[in-house]
Design a protein around this nucleic acid. Structure first.
Lengths: 194, 194
DNA sequence: ATCATTATGTAACGTCCATTACGTATCTGG
DNA sequence: CCAGATACGTAATGGACGTTACATAATGAT
């Protein structure tokens, strides 16, 4: 009971995510959030909590709606196919929206004041989770034979995501999808022989 | 004539650079700058101009005192030696100071509000300049024969710096020098045969 | 010794920030 | 149709931000 919400929570969260994606945690003001969501401040607070809580919910949405390409890629059949798909997914996402180039997981909070520390750590953890999933997948590939037994899964996972992060920085600087793709192709040529 | 400065301008700039390196343009307040430099606000304004001008001067200092490893590396004899040295230099710098991990050229302003746009663009330009220097060096290597004539210098330069940017993101997240080095070694294995 | 000049620290400026008190509006349950 | 509950928009809160006025102190030149 009580008065019903006059806005869609998921729509507002999506709009807020867009702003954080573009401007980062610290670069985003409530004026920005109100403009993007069409929702007044007190309603944002009542629906999401404070700015940090809203950012963390935006991260959840990003993880499930946009940044899930790593978790999807590990379903592919070979380690190289997984690695390739991860970079393809990163490039596609980093260039999908012209107004929010790059990766929310990096743009959101790379460096900042102490106020942004919790957000920064949350993004670091999310990226580390992706790296762990990738490492486990590569480890499995070694037992299945499509990755050399002497390969270092942890380094390979870190390598692929380091490329992805570098591509995200370049995408934020305005690099075209074509240029990013050429870089990724070169990066994948370092993949160890099975 | 006039009263002499009671602080060393270069020392203050170095201290300000340290703060921007760690917290970025938007994450840095004048309270931070005063604490780090030991210089009061009006003296900072009189010596450097406003926050944006101070940031740009910090970038100049970073470019000449820290981020010059790209410009130094191109003096090496082969394209591969240059590429190797660039990544070595990036890793060394990204992990040199525990309290300011990563690269000022990325940490300084990756995403932010409109207020940081000028700083952001200045960093993008600085990174693009490094890429151009690297591309020209690789182009020369093709004429000198230590790089395959059908290699794409622009892609190779972008590739190496994309790796460097990815390493910087990982360094900011706390990656060890050893792990970064393993990633860089793998990245360099993609280098085309002469 | 006085003057113009430049730097100093204190203490303020207006503006924007994240956050919320409050009175009103709209729903459900009885 | 009233009571309780929840959401609404307006407008304010205190604090932090970048920036600067101002009075004072220290210099070189005449």
């Amino acid at each position: 009971m009580g008065r019903p919400r006059s806005f869609e929570v998921e729509e507002a969260l999506e709009a807020a995510l867009g702003v954080f994606w573009r401007k980062g945690f610290e670069g985003t003001s409530y004026a920005d959030l109100v403009a993007a969501t069409g929702v007044e401040r007190p309603a944002l607070y009542s629906a999401f909590g404070n700015k940090e809580a809203l950012f963390l919910k935006a991260l959840d949405r990003y993880a499930s709606h946009y940044g899930n390409y790593v978790w999807e890629a590990v379903a592919l059949e070979t380690a190289l196919a997984v690695a390739t798909r991860v970079l393809e997914g990163a490039i596609e996402l980093n260039t999908r929206f012209a107004d929010r180039a790059g990766c929310f997981g990096i743009n959101g909070a790379l460096a900042g004041s102490d106020d942004s520390e919790a957000s920064r750590q949350a993004l670091i953890k999310w990226r580390a989770d992706g790296e762990a999933v990738l490492r486990d997948r590569f480890e499995r590939a070694k037992t299945e034979g499509d990755l050399a037994a002497n390969a270092d899964s942890a380094v390979l996972a870190a390598y692929i995501l380091t490329i992805a992060h570098g591509l995200a920085v370049q995408a934020k600087a305005g690099f075209s999808r074509e240029k990013l793709t050429a870089i990724a192709r070169l990066a994948l040529s370092a993949w160890p022989q099975a």
